[in-house]
Simulated scan of single mutants.
Amino acid sequence: MGATGVRILGIAGSLREGSFNGRLLTAASYELPRGLELHRWGGLSLVPPFDEDAEAGPEPAGVAELRRAIAEADGLLFATPEYNGSIPGQLKNALDWASRPYGAGVLTGKPAAVIGASNGVHGAAWAQDELRKVLKLAGAEVLDSTLPVGRVARQLDEDDRLLDHDLRRGLSSLLHGLRDRIRLGAFA
């Protein structure tokens, strides 16, 4: 944990500027428990396709930046959209890089939480389940709870705060859970 607090790395699974899931990370910044800092990483588009042959050569710059950002974080918060019932390919690709080498990648033992938003009624629930599965297999310590935000265009105000009280409370609870998981790891 850093001198100024617990550092959470936020990664939105969408590459689109102004994406709903990027905005959901902003909403999370309003609900952070005291002592947590949210730093967003926006380099997803810079991570090249995973290639085991490329692992033997110089590390691509986008991969090095991803690994550094994850390694420096105390915990991770992913906000994923749902594409065809699953997580976006570019997010899965980045996780494949971050999981290597198997058993010793930067995701190993890292506390992580998953949230997601879509304009559909289910709030990217399937993608959140898929992302949690991938993170667990990569060795991350993933919270059981998620936060699906359906009909997201109606759920965020002009400052990207969640309008619904129950969603705000759910997001706050999830972030408290992430903080507690990080603290458990710090004292283990």
Rank of each mutant, 00 (worst) to 15 (best):
L46H: 14
D144S: 12
E31K: 03
H165W: 00
W126R: 14
G123W: 06
L184M: 10
G170Y: 02
L44C: 09
R179P: 00
G62R: 04
Y83D: 01
R169H: 11
S45Y: 00
E55Q: 14
W41M: 07
G5A: 10
P49A: 04
R100G: 06
D53W: 02
G75C: 11
S45T: 02
F78V: 04
A140D: 09
D159C: 01
P60Q: 10
E17P: 10
D157M: 05
G139V: 12
I11D: 06
D166V: 02
G43P: 13
T108M: 14
L137T: 11
D144V: 09
A71H: 12
K136E: 08
L95Q: 10
G43E: 06
L44N: 07
W97N: 06
Q128W: 03
G105K: 13
G89S: 15
A73C: 11
L167C: 06
V114I: 12
A117H: 01
V152R: 07
D53H: 14
G139I: 13
D160E: 06
G103F: 09
G43C: 09
T80Y: 07
A73R: 01
L143M: 08
L44S: 07
Q155F: 00
L25P: 13
N84Q: 09
I115C: 05
A186Y: 03
R169A: 14
R181G: 00
H39Q: 13
D96W: 00
I115Q: 01
W97C: 07
A186S: 13
G85K: 03
D159V: 00
G35A: 08
R168T: 04
L163H: 00
R40V: 13
T80C: 05
E72P: 10
V142D: 03
K92H: 05
G62T: 04
L107E: 11
N119Q: 08
H39K: 13
E141F: 10
G22S: 15
W126A: 09
A104Q: 15
R181N: 04
L137F: 12
G105D: 11
